[in-house]
Design a protein around this nucleic acid. Structure first.
Lengths: 194, 194
DNA sequence: GACTATTTGACGAAAAAGGTCGAATCGTCT
DNA sequence: AGACGATTCGACCTTTTTCGTCAAATAGTC
């Protein structure tokens, strides 16, 4: 049965997730995952090629769930400032968890795990788009102002990420008193400059 | 220099404590302890015989600290009921942490680590004495009443631990409305009966 | 009862971890 | 300077752990 099979796989992923998140990749053993799933170690290999494969599935599932949650929470909100706030909040709480999660694991294997970087990039692109969309919307609604009005929102966010382009959210609208590039630093890297 | 030496030892203990408490005995490696202490692995062996030796030092230090904290917090308090409350509170919070800490680790090695049982017993004795002292004091000050006035306080506590002797704290004094044996269950095993 | 899906124990190879040892380095005292 | 103990560390050996494989056993279904 396919359903059965998928269920077993899911169970393994869920179990592995909780163990990985506590012990990291290296310290988590197949034996532990197996025992926690009440299976023999060999059975795990029936569902997954190897340990990295399980880990991959865990991260991808987690990433997907965060994406979904973000979209769901933002869907109904109209006000761009509110949307940004929600985006920041959820993103900080959930995604940083994931980031820490797998960066802690990356340090185990350093150069390995290119797939994590792929997920990361895909995320970044998603976020750039999402934030740019919100900002664009905010500009159109007159909630945000930008120094150089020639820049498109998406260009702004992209540029800000790499170059720290000095762009402001005007103080007059809403209660953001932070430069957007700092906001992005905050958003993407958790760095707060004062 | 002896001071230097003791300081280095303490640093290792502290470092090891934090790693042990997260990863448990087995998953913590000497290499990790060494790196976190910014020493070579061999240097660790200059201060400790082996891994178990470090672990022992960690647990003993932690135990000692809890003891000290308990005594300090209780020292000034006069009212026996207050003392009991503090005792319960601190004990539950700190000692259970330690219990969980090393019981999680015990599961790694099961029968090994008799020294932990020794610490445990020493603790139990301490607690029996401490609680008995508080109760004795409470009886003398008329805050507690006991069904069978022939029992000494220490006999009560000892007996209660093993036999669930039904002894009451009278409702009239203070705000304990719980049988003492339940209190002890709560105290020693975290079990609350309603 | 044949055929597929699933589980598992035994096993080998490779990696990791505990622990040793001798040489190097540091700090201090004369 | 140099002698001497305290401390550090890299190289190394040995044992244990861990990953991953495979063939046989079991469960389930048509």
């Amino acid at each position: 049965m396919l359903v059965q099979h998928e269920e077993a796989k899911l169970k393994i992923i869920e179990t592995a997730r909780s163990i990985f998140s506590h012990y990291g990749f290296k310290k988590t053993t197949m034996e532990e995952i197996a025992q926690a799933t009440r299976k023999g170690k060999s059975s795990i290999y029936y569902y997954f090629e190897n340990k990295e494969d399980i880990f991959k599935a865990v991260v991808e599932k987690e990433a997907e769930e965060i994406r979904t949650e973000l979209h769901k929470k933002i869907a109904d909100v109209e006000d761009p400032i509110e949307r940004l706030k929600i985006y920041i909040t959820v993103r900080m709480r959930k995604f940083n968890k994931l980031t820490n999660f797998y960066s802690a694991i990356k340090s185990d294997y350093l150069s390995h795990f290119e797939f994590i970087e792929e997920i990361r990039k895909s995320y970044d692109l998603d976020e750039v788009k999402a934030i740019a969309g919100i900002i664009q919307d905010g500009i159109e609604k007159g909630k945000f102002t930008i120094d150089d009005p020639q820049l498109s929102a998406i260009a702004i966010v992209t540029a800000m990420k790499g170059l720290e382009v000095p762009i402001f959210v005007s103080k007059e609208h809403g209660n953001f008193e932070v430069r957007l590039n700092n906001l992005i630093n905050f958003l993407f890297y958790g760095i707060v400059k004062r």
